[in-house]
Structure formats: structure tokens, C-alpha cells
Design a protein around this nucleic acid. Structure first.
Lengths: 129, 129
DNA sequence: AGTTACGTTTACGTTAACGTAAGGCAGAAG
DNA sequence: CTTCTGCCTTACGTTAACGTAAACGTAACT
């Protein structure tokens, strides 16, 4: 039971266009097999796509996501490769941690502003009474 | 002591180009005063710029950041305005919270991959002995 | 045989966020 | 007065990530 999907299956399941899927392939992010002329996607391709989209939502470029996916792919088997991968992973890690703290800053700012807005609103309606 | 800065001051302090600063102004994100022809930035402008850049690092568009800044600006004083602002704030809040959980997912994935790489590395060096 | 449905390639179009000249004004320095 | 500097505007160029359109292949209905 090898689980194969058409390009449309993936497009619907992940809410992206087929154009996007072909584009990701062109950029080396996906490598579906072919049955005749048509693309055939596997479960592994779904995992990769998940990673691409997650990266996107975090503001990563496709090239950056490509790096991450290269890491996930168990084809870099020599020592130099592995060390390089570990470095890349730690780079991403750093960046993500930084992003996390920016998010926390922004969250606390937002809460503060909301409070201020609510307060202004209360005072406004009190004044109108 | 009113603290005024030239465009170059800001560019250097925030590590952006003057072109970017003019562009942000064109898009309504900054509103420096003028002395003759030249722009004169205030402390408030620095706050705004901070918000723009923070938004950028979180993958927000300039338009989205513009909304946030409009909220920060205490010029929307009627009730409808304020309610709208509070809604916007909560929207952003939702999105940021979502982003935060994506980040946590990605962090745990990264850690897992790093472990795997390290393990592969150990096994490789053990095999080479 | 015709047409509907889904797939393919090729290629030009689009938006965001600036980069990069090109040419001009204005005040400080020599 | 000329020559820098530094700032200004105007405007075309650039990259990323697809959108969109054209033109074609093919398998399955009807």
C-alpha cells in the first residue's frame, strides 16, 4: 500500500494551486515520480510540502525551505555533509528562537494597545451618557 | 529638548537604507516633518520604524504593519474607530499566536533532525574505526 | 468520432519591497 | 565663486513566488 496522489489531490488537500506545486518542483522542493507524463506524489512528498508551507508561514524563502528539506532527506551520508547539516539546523534554530522572542514582544505590545483602546472606549461612552 | 534626527541618522541606527525610509514614508508608515526640503525625524518616528521592522521580521507586509501603526497612533478617537481597532488587534493577535505554535512545531522538528544527524554521525565514525 | 476532464509544457504578466541611477537644490568649506 | 556633501525627486530595474493564458496530449465517456 504505497499511497499515490495526483497533483490535484495534493492541491486540494493543502489548499495550494497546481501551478504552485509545479513551481516547487522546478525549484527542487518536490520530486514526484512520473507515470507516463503525469506526476505521481507519494507520502514523502506530502511531508516535504508540509515543511515548505510551514516555512512559508514563518516567512522563510523557498530557498531556505529547500535547505531544511535537504536536511530531512536521508541522502547526505558522509561526515562532512552531516556536520554541515547540523550547522544549518542550528542556524535555523537560532533564527527561530529570535523570531519567537519578537513575537512575544509584539504580543505584549498588542495587549497593551488593546487595553488602551478599551479604556478610551469606556471613557468615551461614559462621556456620552 | 525635542530630539530630531536626519534621514541618515535613522538609516544608520536601524541599519536600513535611506531609500527604504523614503519608501516607508511613501507608503504612509512614517510622517517626518520637513525643514525646508529635508526630512526631520522625531522620537515617535523611531518608534514607528521599530514597529515596521519588527513586523517585517515576522513576515508581515508593509500594509499590515501600517494597520498596526495606525492603531498605535492616537488619532482615531470616535467609537466606531476604536471598535474597529480592537478587532484588528485581535486579528493580529490570532495570527501571531498561530505563528507561535508553528514555530514550536518547527523547533521540535529541528531538534529531532539534529539528533538524527548526530546519531548518524556517531555511527559513521564508529564504523570507520 | 466528438467532447469533456485532467494533465502537460512554455512563456509572458504581476505584486511587494526596495535597488539603482540620473539630475537638481542648498548650505558649508576652501 | 566654485566645489563638496548631503538631501531631494523622478523613474526605471530587480527578485521572489506564483498567476494566467495558450496550445497541446490522452484517457474515458457518449
Amino acid at each position: 500500500m504505497v499511497e499515490r496522489y495526483t497533483i490535484r489531490d495534493l492541491a486540494e488537500d493543502f489548499a495550494v494551486t497546481t501551478r504552485a506545486l509545479r513551481f516547487y518542483e522546478e525549484r527542487g522542493l518536490l520530486r514526484p515520480q512520473r507515470k507516463g507524463q503525469s506526476r505521481v506524489y507519494s507520502a514523502a512528498d506530502r511531508v516535504r510540502l508540509t515543511l515548505v508551507l510551514r516555512g512559508k508561514r514563518l516567512g522563510f524563502t523557498l530557498d531556505e525551505s529547500a535547505e531544511l528539506i535537504a536536511m530531512y532527506d536521508p541522502s547526505g551520508n558522509n561526515e562532512g555533509q552531516l556536520r554541515a547539516l547540523i550547522n544549518k539546523i542550528q542556524e535555523k534554530h537560532q533564527r527561530i528562537v529570535a523570531q519567537k522572542s519578537e513575537i512575544e514582544l509584539m504580543l505584549s505590545d498588542l495587549k497593551e494597545w488593546e487595553q488602551r483602546s478599551r479604556k478610551a472606549l469606556r471613557e468615551l461612552s461614559r462621556g456620552n451618557k
